[in-house]
Structure formats: C-alpha cells, structure tokens
Design a protein around this nucleic acid. Sequence first.
DNA 1: TATTGTTATACTCTATAACTATA
DNA 2: TATAGTTATAGAGTATAACAATA
Lengths: 143, 143
Amino acid sequence: MPEKDHEHLATELGAAVSLLMRQMRAASPHGELSPTQRAVIGRIDTDGEATIAALARAERVRPQSMRLTVGALEERGVLTRRPHPTDGRQVVFSLTEEGRRLLAVVRQAKHNWLAVAIADRLTPEEQRTLATATELMRRLMSE
Amino acid sequence: MPEKDHEHLATELGAAVSLLMRQMRAASPHGELSPTQRAVIGRIDTDGEATIAALARAERVRPQSMRLTVGALEERGVLTRRPHPTDGRQVVFSLTEEGRRLLAVVRQAKHNWLAVAIADRLTPEEQRTLATATELMRRLMSE
DNA sequence: TATTGTTATACTCTATAACTATA
DNA sequence: TATAGTTATAGAGTATAACAATA
C-alpha cells in the first residue's frame, strides 16, 4: 500500500526544509552572514575561486541575483576580484584573509545554532544518518 | 580526529538545505503555491484547524508575517475563517473544499518536482534513509 | 498585564528586462 | 551569435513598530 510513498516523503521533506531554512534565517541576525552568503563563501572555500556565472549555476539562482550577493560580500571585504587571465569577460572571485577568518568564526559551534543542535540532540548514529541524507539531498538536485 | 564533525555536518546540511529551498522555490512558478503556503495548508491538513498565532509558532515566523501568508490563502479561497467559540480574540482557519482539492493536486508527482526526483534518483533504501533524516531535522527544531 | 489580530512600513533575496563588452 | 557582467526595477517573504480588542 505504500504505492506513493515518494509523494508523502516529498511533502514531509519539503516541509522540514522550509522550516529549517526559516529557523536558520531567524538564527543569523544583524551583523552576521545570511544563509545564502554563507553558502557562497563556503563553496568558494571548498571548490576554490569562481566566477559569478559559475556560482549562480551552482547555487541555482540567476546571475543577476548572484551578482548582488557577491557584491555585498565584496563590499564587506570578504571576497576580492581579479580579472580572468585569458577571458576578458570573466571576473574571478576568491576569499580574502578576512573572509577565511569570518568563515572559521561562523562555523564554530559557539556561533552556530545548527551545530549545537546536532551535537546535543542527535546520537552519533543519527548524525551519520543525517550526513548520508545530506549527500542524498545534493543528488536530488545534481543535473 | 573527527572531533568537530558536527560543525562540518552543520555546514554541509545548511548548504544543502539552502540549495533545496531555492530549487523548490524556482520550481513552483506563477500560479502555484509557494513553499511556505504549501507548508501552511499541509500543516492544517495534518494537525487540523489553527489560529494565526499557532501557525506562526509552528512555522517559526512572526504572527504578522503569518497573517500575510494566511491572508493570501484566504483570499484565494483555500482557507476559511471562523471565530473561536470561547475566545473572542482568536480566529480559527481551516481548509475549504478547494483547499483540499488543491493540496491533493500539488502533492501528485505529476506536479511535484521533488517527488519525481526522489522516485527516480534514490533507491528504496536511500528513500528510507531520507525519511529517517526528515524526522531528525524536525527534532533539531523541536523546542 | 498579556495575548490575538491587524495595519503600515522596510529589508532581504531573487526575479525579469535591457544594456555593454568580450569571445 | 553566445556568454559574462552590470544596472534598474519589481515581487515574494519576512521583519519591526504601533495599535485595538479581548482575556
């Protein structure tokens, strides 16, 4: 009878993701980075320097939207730009020292509601399940 | 050495949730319900009729914000209001017939990008892992 | 005094449209 | 012709502030 379990799972997962997103937003107030800004600098930290167009594709937003996000981070001194060596159209963004410092700070459990909740409310096995599921969520989107 | 694995997991989970949220938003265009609207009518469908204040607490937004979401659904004929029987301050919202119909439609895989991706890209075992993780995400937020 | 709902206003994130420069 | 970036503008979602009605 679980013929349409994937529809039920989609409903539950969508609701949980909406909730987590709002909670993350509410928990990152005033001076801090927004979830989107964190995602961008986290990606550059992991994958290396990137162009606006590449970041937009990776984060599933329009280039014009990504430009505003990147522009805010640049203005704040978190990202720095340099021209692409061979393609005069492109601009390559990378983390500044300040960017790396800030990224380390916001990842610390002390400033990170989600890390605290994971450590406090989940067993090690449940943490592993959640880590696996994180990979699965990425796979749902990979094109 | 995985001393701070929960910080790493929090980073990865936060990024994945941001991404999924943007993808869900991009995949629900014009006439359809937004993720927030879906979450609200899904919750009323599951838990029964509710007040604006209760919905706001459950969905982690301010009552003023929830009022706008509920107001849009009411104007669309998806929700209907009635006064609380004993407390003159409260207004109780419930699904209309149209609301139940619409909810059934948006949950169908045919209109549901996420359900299709779950069915197509995950094995049954991976679907179970994701279902378990969905419960874990809820527990991260339960107060 | 606290809570519910409402109205008004503003901020953040993302979108569309139109443009310039380079490939 | 296609792609990268930019500028301008608009919409959705949520926030804060101030208020009236009820408990």
